[in-house]
Simulated assay, not measured.
Amino acid sequence: MIPVFRQDNLIEALPRIEAALDSGWVAANGQYVDEATEKLTKLLNVSGVILVNSGTAAMHLVSKAVQYKYLEVEYIVVPSCASVYAWNPWLYDSKYKLLPMDVDLDTWNINADLLKYVLESGYCDKKVAVCAVHTLGGVMDVPNLRYCLPETVFVEDCCDCFLGSYAHGKVGTQSLCGAFSFYGNSNVTAGEGGALVTNNDEVYAHLSRTKGKCFVEDPTLPTLLEYNYSMTNLHAAVLCDQLGRYDELSLVKNAVHNTYREILADVENVSYQKDTKWLRNANWTFAVRIKYSKGPHEAREFLASRGIDCRPMYQSMYYYDHLRQYTKPKYERNARILAREVIVLPSYPGLSCAEIEYICSVVEAYAQKCEMEMRNG
């Protein structure tokens, strides 16, 4: 079975892992936490980086940043199709209500034209912040949206999109703050972990305390509710190695995605995320939309019977019981189409050209099957 993902490049991190173990300190803070923070600060060209223990923790800190800087915000605009962890952290403190916006069938991110219409027309009279989610590595044009909507607060969920970029800067750096994930299948991994990044000094100072330090660093400051979100020195050791080899890892991953795009470019009824020339996809996972597919379960069975593992697209918001109060099926038509027709294919760095060609041939066969069944009723 060709797996969806396999991490083949962690052996290089062993010297740092052994050094972290030998140091006698593997918990929060430590040498490698400092080193990884410095590397990320330079790589992303930001003034503030806070390492945490997951992308979800980073997203919760994003919500705390909005709460700290913009008390008047009541609603958070989110895509109607995304990882549930793009939505849940906004609800942890029972402060916000979600305002889902349907997605674009080409980019799979929030429909930018719909967003601008809703916010410019006065249709929504509430004070909102927009959480720009860069789904599956596809980049949402936050700088352009900020230009069109200068009074709107923007934050970014970059957990799918490490080192995706705009014309001038990396994702996560062109808004109040951004969240990243270093989960096991991320382009750069710590095994588990995340980061919040910001260029706002006040936000950085506040969230550095909010994420938790387990001790009182400055007794003159007022106390506040803290969370035990710190990344461990052991996980940071893995992250340091990955960041040091990112150029090498990125070249291999880009080659995998470009091979898929080249082979599938003219296959009928098969499409993938549309990129804009000034936006650079992070090339995290490669996913395809297969028109007329009846659903991800049928697609997974078809591919699995031919030795290929795959994953479904994120579900629409209405799928989740605790989120149905914020949406209705008619408001997420495109999200439901993508949830039905998109599957995530194997795209790990060690995937060979021969394997990609085989996977593409099976995808094409499945697309032909779906069209034939549609025509036959």
Rank of each mutant, 00 (worst) to 15 (best):
C310E: 00
V288H: 05
A287P: 02
S316A: 15
K291L: 06
Q273N: 06
D275T: 12
K277D: 03
A282F: 04
A304E: 03
G295I: 12
L279N: 08
K291N: 08
R306G: 03
R311V: 00
D275V: 10
G295K: 06
N281L: 00
P312Q: 13
P312E: 13
N281S: 03
T276E: 09
R311S: 11
M317Q: 07
A282K: 05
A299S: 14
R289Y: 15
A287E: 03
R300I: 11
W278Y: 14
K291Y: 10
T276C: 01
E301W: 02
F302R: 07
R280F: 03
K294A: 14
E301Q: 12
C310M: 00
Q315H: 11
W278P: 05
E301D: 15
H297N: 10
S293I: 05
P312T: 14
W284H: 10
W278I: 12
R311L: 12
C310D: 01
G295D: 06
K294E: 12
R306K: 13
R306F: 09
R300Y: 06
G307H: 05
K294P: 02
H297D: 14
K291G: 04
W278C: 13
R300A: 13
Y314T: 02
E298R: 11
W284D: 06
T276H: 09
I308N: 03
D309P: 00
E298K: 13
K294C: 13
R289D: 14
S316H: 14
R289Q: 14
K274S: 07
A282T: 07
N269C: 11
C310P: 01
N281V: 02
S271T: 09
D309Y: 04
N283E: 11
W284I: 00
K291W: 05
T285H: 05
F286I: 04
F286M: 08
K274C: 10
I290F: 07
V288I: 08
R289N: 15
N269W: 09
N281P: 06
N269Y: 12
S271I: 02
E301V: 15
P296R: 02
